[in-house]
Design a protein around this nucleic acid. Structure first.
Length: 935
RNA sequence: GCCCCCGUGGCGGAACGGCAGACGCUACGGACUUAAAAUCCGUUGAGCUUUAUCGCUCGUGUGGGUUCGAUUCCCACCGGGGGCACCA
């Protein structure tokens, strides 16, 4: 057996806590030390406890933090709990315990587990999102959002008081998208493009209208809109939380339902959220996911007038007097205005407000039936039915503004109300969906774009969707797509029937939930249901104690049952509290700021401390938060930045996604009744596995995501007991690149145990045999000295690049060489210990003490390498003939090219390959290799 | 369907224009042991040749290309993973 890791690990974990070893220093105490903020995505403390996936990211940041401490940095490395959320509440409902109790219990278990792994967190900064002292500031930030609006010219959030003041001065216009523009200037007007209309003057509005208008400008506002309602969870969900029409949590069906809900105006930040990605050291794939989610597309809005109904139709239409078609038009969004001449019909979403008004009486029944059918379909069904296009004719025609052609208007459910204008022009010749629809309903197909290269051909058999050259389009004929777009938009703008627009897939963030276990809104509703912000000094608004916090299944949520809590009197007026709560994401949107100053009672974070620590230098977490937490947090941060509460435009400078750790590899036969087999039963032939006993039976190897139902979950506690925290940490880092998905294999841990035991044996001795290691202040043998300096260089580089697997390999190699020594040079022993410390901190502390030091290894400086000692005095160079390795030559490191080539030509094993042949070329790549080209 | 990433020994992986397979696991051999486990030392891509050494051939999913030289760069295909998905 090796050293007693259990005793050693316990001892040092206690030492670190007792001595506050990993305390991050406040800026005033840091005396000019460079800072580093190294952050993990804080976990949701579930009842299941830690999973082997958690320690992966945590070990990575821990190694990085410990390395930086050794490099003299003041390191902030905190941990906390994202403890609001559905699972705690569901568990509470099931077991009839209060979520507070289970949360406390789970947090304690998580903390114990994390501490047993020797993570160097500053536990004095622990943060819990459900703590009223924390909730207070989450609510405070919400008030910042509520009390702000977005200025479309400066593209920043500003206090709503400023807006109200300017509105009263009457100095504003309203842009087409509903944005309010204050003090409009020529420049400002151009920036928002298009026509600008002046609303009624402020003083002409009724007080209620004024209030509603201001409310509609806030960054946090309520809106009655179709939302994602999940009956099983009893709450609404954000778009980001709905996957394939099912809830991300639990996988329950989600339906669309109109409800009054709190929204956050994240769409105002769409452009900045895209642009600032360029300043971040994040994985490209993740940036791409955010860009796709925001879904910016540039195009045009075009207005199609409704054609007056034929006189004959009108005569039969008793209701036609209700409809004044002169004023009606359908506005569409298109990314291909250059295809306008090819628009042969239009389609409205079933929910489009114009459908009722323009449907001709003879078509009314059919349209109503279709709308009812579409409304009854869940999003899920609508997507499943995506392949088969359905739709109905409204009986009405519109006028194509570019050529005055009369084109029919349809209603179809594949047009989404939530994107663009909820109406589209259809160009079947140049769009897949339009083409499918036109084919089905026998609508005309008109070619207006011709291919320029060999990337397609003009035909009526399939749509040509690439860019090309405009044809059959009088004012743009012959123009390439890009130019044609510009020309058309200019023409539309001139005629006042269209304009250039940017459209986004991103929707405003639905921010309220009908649940108990979340932050209450700091909002009172008056008798008319209008929201009023509570004062900062009233915070926090805590959850009322309740025995029955089951979801009500209504938009009011469980808090509506707390009658006493609900009713508030202010200045003689009776208000009702907002009964919705905030989603789980609220707490995680700013926790990284609270770590900086966790016990501040005057501010959410002290300004000087914030300035010192931000931004986060390294953030490690799973990719599952790509369009959730990471987008939401960036948005909140930008609002706080605009309002002057934080100093950086982005929160997380460098971000790394650790790869998923899968369950152990499983093998099963490929036959009618597949059965599980073990690794020993199989052999590989070619590139497939077969059964040893029956080589005709194929075997498939797979590793799956760890799950309780599969029974392949690995519990970190048992690994720590069996192998120790150091071996566990080392194994997780050694499995492969941090970002890669990789299968767990308990069998492999033994390699790390052997390594650690070997180091202990070399530096301390073998406790079993009683053999004591000999450490002496002797010179390091030359080759080993060179290897040591190289290791110092390589390990540092690898840690900085988060390549922990190769760093560990170097340490193993160095130790393997030391196995051969009778006496270990002290310098070598100490350097190995220092380099091992970030990876296996418990053992390193123990070795450091055994080497005679009395202080923790934590802040001992990282060893330095001597560049002069890296290079060998002689070089071993491979010699290739025609690119094939034939021999190796040894030359002095400073030999010149001529000498080297001569040596290469004379090399014993090279001779037969060049004999009697003409040497056409001699290549020498300095310090790398020689290649001789013969004919 | 579109976008992104990845295919290297029995396994995890390394190298990412210049000696393919570092390092670890497994397996095999040896030492220790009465024995086994543990531990330590050695061998371990496939094949040919050889008593052995030496030596040679093949080899990074498949097929092409660029290059003196390709696992690495380019093109096409096959396979795996992830994201988006009626987004106009």
């Amino acid at each position: 057996m090796g050293y007693n890791f259990t005793a050693i690990e316990k001892k040092w974990q206690k030492h670190w806590l007792d001595n506050r070893t990993f305390r991050a220093l406040d800026p005033k105490d840091a005396s000019g030390m460079p800072k580093a903020y190294v952050l993990d995505m804080f976990p949701y403390p579930s009842g299941e406890g830690l999973h082997v996936g958690h320690p992966e990211g945590m070990t990575a940041t821990d190694i990085f933090s410990r390395y930086l401490r050794a490099k003299g940095y003041n390191v902030l490395h905190p941990m906390g709990w994202d403890a609001f959320g559905l699972p705690a509440e569901q568990y509470a409902v099931r077991t009839n315990t209060h979520p507070r109790d289970t949360t406390v219990k789970n947090i304690n278990n998580f903390r114990r587990q994390i501490q047993s792994l020797g993570m160097s967190y500053d536990w004095e900064r622990e943060v819990d999102t459900t703590d009223p002292k924390y909730v207070r500031w989450t609510q405070w930030i919400f008030l910042q959002l509520f009390n702000s609006y977005f200025d479309p010219i400066d593209k920043v959030a500003k206090p709503i008081a400023h807006l109200i003041n300017e509105l009263q001065n009457g100095n504003f216009v309203v842009a087409p998208d509903g944005d309010v523009v204050l003090n409009p200037t020529q420049e400002g007007m151009e920036a928002i493009t298009g026509e600008v209309r002046v609303e009624r003057l402020w003083h002409e509005l009724l007080p209620d209208e004024q209030q509603d208008f201001i409310h509609g400008q806030r960054l946090a506002y309520t809106d009655e809109a179709p939302v994602n309602w999940c009956p099983q969870l009893g709450t609404v969900l954000a778009n980001e939380e709905v996957i394939d029409g099912k809830s991300e949590v639990g996988g329950f069906p989600v339906e669309r339902r109109p409800m009054r809900q709190w929204m956050l105006r994240i769409t105002a930040y769409a452009d900045r959220l895209i642009e600032d990605l360029n300043t971040l050291a994040w994985p490209d794939s993740l940036k791409e996911m955010q860009r796709n989610w925001i879904g910016r597309s540039v195009g045009a809005r075009v207005e199609f007038a409704i054609a007056a109904p034929d006189a004959a139709v009108q005569a039969n239409d008793r209701d036609s007097s209700d409809t004044d078609f002169d004023d009606l038009s359908i506005e569409v969004f298109t990314t291909r205005p250059d295809t306008l001449y090819g628009a042969t019909y239009m389609v409205l979403a079933p929910e489009h407000e114009l459908v009722d008004r323009i449907t001709s009486p003879t078509r009314r029944e059919t349209i109503e039936a279709y709308r009812t059918m579409a409304a009854g379909k869940s999003d899920r069904d609508r997507m499943t039915d995506a392949k088969e296009k359905t739709g109905v004719f409204t009986g009405t025609f519109a006028i194509n503004p570019i050529n005055d052609e009369k084109i029919p208007v349809y209603v179809a459910d594949y047009v989404l109300m939530g994107y663009g204008t909820g109406a589209i022009m259809e160009v079947p010749a140049h769009d897949e969906r339009d083409f499918a629809f036109a084919k089905k309903f026998g609508l005309p197909i008109k070619l207006v774009v011709a291919p320029t290269k060999d990337d397609g051909s003009l035909s009526l058999d399939k749509p040509f969707t690439n860019e090309g050259v405009a044809v059959n389009s009088p004012i743009i004929d012959g123009q390439p797509t890009t130019e044609a777009k510009a020309t058309i938009i200019a023409a539309l703008e001139r005629d006042g029937v269209g304009r250039r627009t940017v459209n986004y897939k991103l929707r405003d963030w639905l921010f309220s939930r009908q649940r108990y276990w979340g932050e209450p809104f700091p909002i009172l509703l008056d008798a008319a249901g209008r929201p009023h912000a509570l004062d900062e000094k009233d915070l926090p608004i805590t959850l009322p104690p309740m025995d029955d916090f089951k979801p009500t299944g209504t938009p009011e949520g469980p808090l509506s049952k707390a009658k006493d809590w609900l009713r508030v009197e202010r200045d003689g007026q009776v208000f009702s509290r907002e009964t919705n709560t905030m989603p789980q994401w609220a707490g995680s949107c700013w926790y990284y700021l609270r770590y900086i100053d966790p016990s501040n009672v005057d501010r959410f974070v002290d300004a000087d401390k914030e300035k010192y620590w931000m931004p986060v230098d390294l953030y490690v977490g799973g990719v599952e938060h790509a369009v959730l937490h990471l987008l939401y947090a960036r948005f909140w941060h930008k609002v706080l930045f605009d309002l002057g509460h934080v100093s950086t435009p982005e929160p997380f400078q460098r971000l790394v996604n650790q790869g998923l750790i899968l369950g152990e590899m499983e093998y099963h036969t490929v036959e009618e009744l597949p059965r599980k087999v073990t690794e020993d039963d199989i052999e590989k032939k070619g590139d497939a596995y077969f059964l040893k006993t029956d080589p005709t039976i194929k075997v498939k190897a797979e590793s799956f995501k760890m799950s309780k139902s599969r029974g392949n979950v690995v519990n970190p506690d048992s690994i720590v007991v069996d192998y120790g925290a150091d071996a566990f940490r080392l194994y997780e880092m050694y499995m492969g690149p941090l970002e890669a998905q990789k299968p767990w294999n308990t069998r492999d841990i033994i390699g790390m145990t052997r390594f650690l035991n070997g180091v202990y044996r070399n530096l301390v001795g073998d406790e079993e045999s009683g053999k004591v290691a000999k450490i002496d202040a002797i010179a390091i043998p030359e080759t080993l000295d060179r290897q040591m300096h190289r290791t110092i260089k390589k390990v540092a580089e690898d840690i900085e690049g988060l390549r922990f697997n190769t760093a560990i390999a170097e340490l193993i190699k160095l130790n393997n060489e030391m196995n051969r020594l009778e006496t270990i040079p002290r310098e070598l022993a100490e350097n190995l210990t220092l380099m091992l410390a970030p990876f296996a901190p418990h053992l390193a502390e123990e070795l450091w003490a055994q080497l005679g030091h009395h202080k923790s290894i934590t802040h001992r400086p990282w060893p330095t390498f001597d560049a002069g000692k890296l290079a060998e005095s002689t070089l071993e160079l491979p010699v290739q003939v025609n690119g094939k390795l034939r021999d190796k030559i040894t030359v002095p490191a400073d030999a010149d090219e001529a000498t080297i080539l001569a040596t290469a030509l004379a090399a014993e094993k090279v001779k037969p390959w060049i004999e009697g042949k003409e040497i056409k070329k001699q290549l020498y790549v300095p310090r790398k290799m020689v290649n001789l080209v013969v004919g």
